[in-house]
Computed example of a mutant assay.
Amino acid sequence: MANRGPTKHLKRLVLPSYIKIRRKDKKYLLKPSPGPHPKDDSISLGVLLRDYMGIAANMREVRYILRNGRIKVDGRIVKEPKFPIGFQDIVDIDGVGKYIIDIDSHGYFVPRDYNGNSQILKVIRKTKVKGGKLQYTFHNGRTLLSEDSSIKVGDSVVYDVNSKSISKIISQDLNRECIVLRGKHRGFRGKIKQVLNIGKRVADVVNEKGESVRTDYKYLFLLG
């Protein structure tokens, strides 16, 4: 039998745990396309507008809104319903409001009201390019050329989507505020209390209630 290619939808009953929608209403959910966020840690823009925010009743309305250029993601107009949306994306909806995509304590994506232009980005790659400059790649697929060599992989930066510039570097130090982005502790927020090398690099994170978790260090996302 011939290969029919990749599926265009996700089955609701086997969705990743971070997607908070009703799973028995319909059989399928629109699958995010390849893009700035990995498909296993993002939702499609159409799902955000219809299932999370209720701005559209169905995908026909979603496509109408997008065709009219009413949606900006990180300052750029997006017209593709399958465009992947992930942590710290800024979604600006003309006539409705501006939102930033956050992760709550249960690990679910949540759009929160937002009136700023800055987002926090995690550095996932650092490459030297021609001319002696450094190219930084961030968790949302964005890249930036810079002469600043002090930024390290694993650091976070505060990035302005309008000026396309970094206003602050959040380095990897103890007592930094962070959130766990993957694993069974996804959504846990607290401060880094210690980092250990026990076959792999792990970190102990403690929240303001004194609750502590140990997680893979690479799952951490520095917030401040």
Rank of each mutant, 00 (worst) to 15 (best):
M1N: 15
N3R: 13
R4F: 15
G5F: 06
G5E: 08
P6C: 13
P6F: 11
L10E: 08
L10W: 14
R12N: 07
V14N: 13
L15R: 03
S17Y: 14
Y18Q: 03
Y18G: 00
R22L: 14
K26W: 14
L29M: 08
L29Q: 07
K31H: 12
S33C: 09
P34W: 06
G35M: 02
G35W: 02
P36Y: 15
K39C: 10
D41M: 14
S42G: 06
S44Y: 01
G46Q: 03
L48T: 01
L48N: 00
L49H: 02
L49A: 03
Y52L: 02
M53Q: 05
M53I: 05
G54S: 05
I55V: 10
I55N: 07
A56M: 09
A56V: 09
A57F: 13
M59G: 07
V62L: 04
R63L: 09
R63H: 10
R67W: 10
N68V: 11
N68G: 15
R70P: 06
I71V: 11
I71C: 02
I71S: 00
K72A: 07
V73N: 01
I77H: 06
I77C: 06
V78A: 05
E80F: 12
E80I: 13
P81A: 01
P81I: 02
F83V: 07
I85H: 00
G86L: 03
Q88H: 12
D89K: 05
I90K: 05
I90S: 01
I93W: 05
D94T: 13
G95V: 06
G97S: 06
G97C: 03
I101D: 01
D102W: 14
S105P: 11
S105N: 13
H106C: 11
G107C: 01
V110R: 08
P111N: 04
R112T: 15
R112Y: 10
R112Q: 15
Y114P: 01
Y114R: 04
Y114N: 02
G116Q: 08
N117K: 13
N117D: 12
I120N: 01
L121H: 02
L121N: 03
I124G: 02
K126N: 05
K126T: 02
K128Y: 11
V129N: 01
V129G: 04
K130E: 13
G131A: 07
Y136L: 11
T137A: 10
N140D: 04
G141D: 00
R142E: 09
T143A: 09
L144M: 11
L145W: 10
E147V: 15
E147G: 13
E147C: 09
S149N: 11
V153E: 08
D155N: 05
D155V: 00
V157D: 01
V161S: 01
S163R: 08
K164H: 11
I166G: 00
I169V: 14
I170T: 00
S171T: 12
N175D: 15
C178D: 00
V180N: 03
V180L: 06
R182S: 12
R182D: 09
K184R: 14
H185I: 07
G187F: 05
F188H: 01
R189D: 07
R189F: 07
R189G: 03
I192C: 07
K200L: 09
V202S: 05
V202N: 04
A203R: 00
V205R: 00
N207Y: 09
E208G: 09
E211N: 14
E211W: 11
R214N: 10
R214F: 08
R214P: 07
F221C: 02
